[in-house]
Simulated assay, not measured.
Amino acid sequence: MGRVTERRRVVRVRGGVAGTRPDTLVAEEPLEIRLGGKPLAITMRTPGDDFALAVGFLVSEGVVGSADDVRAVTYCEGAAEDGSNTYNVVNVQLAPGVALPDITLERNVYTTSSCGLCGKASLDAVRTATRFPPAADPVRLPVGLVGELPDRLRAAQKVFDRTGGLHAAGLFSAGGELLDVREDVGRHNAVDKIIGRAVQAGRLPLAGSVLLVSGRASFELAQKAVMAGIPVLAAVSAPSSLAVDLAQEAGLTLIGFLRGGDMNIYAGEERIEFPAPVGQGVSQRP
């Protein structure tokens, strides 16, 4: 299996003085996801939790919704040039009776480490495929607890401490307990790994939970939260307009600019409890 980090020579300049030293970098390698032996998607990811990543990706695409939908996940034999196994190609076999999707089997879909699935279908695709709509989830969160989550996530980022080059996704309980954390060069990969691990543990839907991501909240991340039944998605940076549209329609609480206890709530504010009524006329910009 590939390494999470790699060492490279770097010229380090401090105070105008240059010197050479080894530096620890986060690894980035392609992962091809196959479904029933047919190419489905290629993503750039940090090696590790590859099976969970593949299963989580299939959840977000509406293909699977539980561990019972998956017969096996394996690295592909003979995928390397010398005929050996390669750890950059994963094949997912669906359980008997689970329908093969027609979404991407006729085209090779490429996803990057930064933006997720390129050319993802619109809101209509999520409407038709959602198995665990979060709208009815009754979870409530004190605003003070939400403000503490970024520090708790940051404290759990072990590889980031060594490289400074990874995004993170953390899954929290309604009480603020960190249930799982994954790091990856791509935010969407980190989320897929969390969702995939939940599927493998038989914990889908992820009702009553909070998903916190480093960086921004794109449509793809909102989609993944909705498809996994997560009622609250928070990000330390801005959401996109389409992410807000999806959150409002699906009943997802969407929080952006979560920093130092400050935040913007773009949808589902009824889930956030305040010690006093929310003031009127407050600027919506951070």
Rank of each mutant, 00 (worst) to 15 (best):
V4K: 11
V4L: 08
T5Q: 01
E6S: 09
R7W: 05
V10F: 06
V10E: 10
V17Q: 12
A18C: 01
G19H: 11
T20K: 03
T20N: 00
R21S: 12
E29A: 10
P30H: 06
G36S: 11
P39H: 08
R45F: 00
G48D: 04
F51T: 02
A52M: 12
V55G: 03
E61V: 00
D69P: 09
V73R: 07
T74S: 09
G78E: 01
D82G: 13
S84T: 09
T86C: 02
Y87K: 00
N88T: 09
V92T: 05
V92S: 01
P96A: 13
G97N: 12
A99R: 15
Y110E: 09
Y110Q: 08
T112P: 02
C115H: 15
G119W: 04
K120F: 11
D124P: 03
V126N: 08
R127Q: 08
P134C: 07
P134H: 07
A135Y: 01
P138F: 05
P142Y: 10
V143S: 11
G144P: 00
G144M: 06
G147R: 09
G147K: 10
L149Y: 07
R152G: 10
L153V: 03
R154M: 05
R162T: 10
G164Y: 14
G164V: 12
G165T: 07
L166D: 01
L171V: 07
A174T: 03
L179V: 06
G186H: 04
I195G: 00
G196N: 06
A198L: 03
A198R: 00
A198S: 13
A198P: 05
Q200E: 15
Q200L: 13
G202E: 12
L204A: 05
P205H: 02
L206Y: 01
G208V: 09
L211M: 14
L212R: 01
L212Y: 03
R216V: 05
R216Y: 08
A217R: 03
F219Y: 15
A225D: 01
A225Q: 08
M227C: 07
S237Y: 08
S237N: 13
S237K: 13
L242T: 12
A243N: 07
L246T: 02
A247M: 05
Q248E: 12
E249P: 05
E249Q: 14
T253P: 02
I255G: 02
G256E: 15
F257H: 12
Y266A: 11
R271P: 09
Q280K: 14
Q284F: 10
R285N: 15
